[in-house]
């Protein structure tokens, strides 16, 4: 291509990168994306592989025999499975709503340069990212003082505030909210809350979508809180159901020489590898379904931003 035609192409493409460059982008991103998804497909294939096939040819993208045994085993968990499915959804939805509300309410004044106690509250939250009291004192405070034991609070409250998300949210305010807007609104007599809700929130939608996504993911994948505070099976989230299988297997492996023959029986009744893979599929599927929904908001935010410009 000559310099002239290059410039022509350039102007035709309305300030975009060249086709060649874009092709290269597609190649790089495409390959990486493929690498990201292939192992999950592999897990699905393994979850549908017959145990016998795994024993004979190992893990393979093309198993010698297919089987739905693993899923039949998972479904035979019955109530335990559906309870924990419900719990996971409940915890994720309630947790995300409360957590994101608190996050936005905390991040907004931090972004207001005219707020008096800004640096104090900044420090108050960021300091906890680096310093903590450790597991045992936190456990005692939550359990003895706040009575988080065998209830939904225990699975929601300890993760409500994430200083990291506060920082992300504050950064979003900084990069996308023009300060004059607040000034104008205040002069018009708008209260602080109504300014935030009516004027600011619509602008930072992409930020809220991002923070919601991160929070929801964190709640969905959480199992350690359940290990700490919950012994009632009706309260197990799905993730813990899987972790428990995993931890059962690990414990028996580590201590088999101590448990002896009784352990051999326990190991024999452990869920098979394929069944664990099937549970992984059960866990990942809802996220995979919900993610594009979140993404739409991110994209919607994008269009609003560019229309405004």
């Amino acid at each position: 291509m000559t310099a002239v035609s290059k410039r022509m192409a350039h102007s035709f493409r309305l300030n975009q990168v060249s086709r060649k460059a874009e092709a290269a982008f597609h190649l790089v991103l495409g390959l990486f994306s493929l690498a990201c998804i292939v192992p999950f497909l592999f897990v699905i294939i393994i979850s549908f592989s017959a145990e016998d096939s795994i024993r004979r040819i190992g893990y393979s993208f093309v198993p010698a025999a297919w089987s739905t045994d693993a899923y039949r085993q998972v479904l035979s968990l019955g109530d335990a499975l559906w309870h924990s499915y419900f719990n996971s959804f409940f915890i994720t939805i309630v947790g995300t709503l409360v957590s994101v509300t608190m996050c936005v309410m905390y991040a907004y004044p931090l972004f207001r340069r005219d707020y008096r106690f800004r640096s104090f509250f900044s420090f108050l939250s960021f300091f906890t990212m680096i310093f903590g009291g450790g597991l045992i004192p936190t456990y005692i405070v939550c359990k003895n003082l706040l009575h988080m034991s065998n209830n939904y609070y225990a699975l929601i409250v300890p993760m409500l505030v994430s200083p990291f998300n506060i920082i992300i949210m504050r950064t979003f305010f900084q990069t996308s909210v023009p300060f004059d807007l607040i000034e104008a609104a205040t002069i018009d007599g708008s209260g602080e809350y109504s300014t935030l809700i009516r004027i600011i929130l619509p602008i930072v939608k992409p930020g809220i979508a991002t923070v919601s996504l991160l929070t929801a993911l964190a709640y969905w994948n959480e199992w350690f809180l359940c290990l700490l505070y919950v012994t009632q099976r009706e309260l197990y989230p799905l993730q813990y159901l899987l972790m428990e299988m995993q931890r059962n297997a690990e414990f028996l492996a580590r201590n088999s020489s101590m448990i002896g023959a009784a352990g051999a029986d326990a190991i024999r009744t452990l869920p098979s590898q394929t069944m664990r893979m099937a549970v992984v599929v059960f866990i990942v599927l809802p996220i995979a379904c919900a993610y594009p929904f979140f993404q739409r908001y991110v994209v919607a935010g994008l269009t609003i931003g560019s229309v405004k410009g």
Binding site: T101, M102, C103, M105, Y106, Y108, P109, R112, Y115, F117, F121, L124, S125, T128, F131, G132, G133, G134, I136, P137, T138, I140, V141, C142, L145, L146, V157, P158, L160, V161, I166, E192, Y193, L196
Partner: peptide, 22 residues
């Protein structure tokens, strides 16, 4: 603006700062 910070502040004090004596 301070009332906005209250919920998270209470949380931070109870669940992050209180255990620091540990």
């Amino acid at each position: 603006l301070t009332t906005m910070m209250l919920p998270a502040t209470i949380w931070l004090l109870l669940i992050r700062y209180l255990p620091m004596f540990g």
